[in-house]
Computed example of a mutant assay.
Amino acid sequence: MKEQILSNAKLILADEVVNGSLVIRDGKIADIDTHDSQLSQADDLNGDYLMPGMVELHTDNQEKYFTPRPKVDYPGHLAMATHDAQLIAAGITTSFDSVALGDIIGDSTRVEKLDAMIKAIVASEQNGLNRASHFLHLRCEVSFPGLMEFFERYIGEDLVKLVSVMDHAPGQRQFPPENIPKYREYYQGKYNMSDSEMDDFIAIQQANSAKYADRFRRTICEVCNDRGIATASHDDATLTHAQESAQLGMQVAEFTTTLVAARASHELGLKVLMGAPNVVRGGSHSGNIAAAELARDGVLDILSSDYYPSALLQAAFMVAGQDNGYTLADAIALVTRNPAQASNLFDRGELKTGLRADLVQVHPHEVMPMIQRTWREGRRVF
């Protein structure tokens, strides 16, 4: 690959933003200069920002393309191509595609399509069809009786680089005892259950959580720790939850629901991950803590697009513009360096010599930051 020079750019480095140029050689960042290049072959970025390609730790964006409508199955390679194209257009060059191992309903679409989805993700990556780098994030529903069968089937996949544990049973994490009426309202409407059917459903979910959750959570963390795979908690709400997650060796605290849990997780060394849509929309759609509040408290470490890829860049720039201690460099680290390091990917996520030339050119339009170009390992992919 020939040498490339990107000049007249605002370079978003780890700790500051500087004007200058960047040299790409053999797919890696070869040099960074705080002066514009005078060489005729330099590519003029017209003063736009140049930042690392974003690293997405938790997205189920692909699900909508595998099943675009109820009872409609779409070919896996086309579903992945559409998902991948949307990520690249959003500036995401590394994606952890999250797949749910188990669900609150045993025969749900997520469970039914799980094997086909994982096969498509793996095949598209192995066959070089993707423009972004894709890994697997196994989301383990620890109150699901058949979880360990799924976990043992997929944990050996080379692309598995992140595993999270979650418990959506009523009375747990996202649905503490005081929120069970909201749980009832949501799932009764979703699955069209009568009052008595909903009573039985709640009883079964609570029994399954009591029987399986603690044992499954501990076993999964032990296996992942032995394999060097990063682990994440999900919807931690209390100090006890955060302490348990730290004790089990987790690296990430996904979608903490309270300031208490976020503070404790951050202080215990877990990277607190929140949803970019939470920032863009101005709060949590489920009534939990707002990501902006965590930023004001200095305990927001990672942003995830979750279900809306283009929210990631927008949210980072919004955090930088809000009343908190985050500079633009700090805010961009929420979607680049921090998620990369939390998932043990130390070859990307920062504008630094020797790292992968995964790059995004961003024009600071007055309405919103606009992505102009995206590179993966020095090759332009958007």
Rank of each mutant, 00 (worst) to 15 (best):
L6C: 10
A14F: 13
A30F: 11
D31F: 07
I32W: 08
S37E: 09
L39A: 12
L45Q: 14
G47S: 03
M51K: 04
M54W: 14
N61H: 15
Y65A: 10
T67L: 12
R69S: 11
V72D: 04
D73N: 15
A79T: 02
M80E: 03
H83K: 01
A90T: 07
T94E: 03
T94G: 03
D103L: 12
I104F: 01
V111N: 15
E112R: 15
E112M: 12
I121E: 14
G146E: 15
F151V: 05
E152P: 09
E152A: 02
G156D: 14
G156Y: 13
P170T: 03
G171Q: 08
K182G: 00
R184V: 03
N192W: 02
D195K: 10
E197R: 00
Q205C: 01
K211Y: 01
Y212R: 14
N225Q: 15
G228C: 04
I229N: 01
A232Q: 13
S233N: 01
H234L: 02
D236P: 01
A237H: 08
T238A: 04
L239C: 11
E254P: 00
T257P: 13
L259P: 07
A264R: 14
S265P: 09
L268E: 08
V272A: 03
L273I: 02
M274S: 05
P277I: 10
V279C: 08
V280A: 03
A292P: 08
V299I: 15
D330N: 15
A331V: 08
A331R: 11
D347H: 12
K352D: 00
T353F: 06
G354C: 11
L355N: 06
P369C: 07
P369F: 06
P369Q: 10
G378D: 06
V381M: 11
V381P: 10
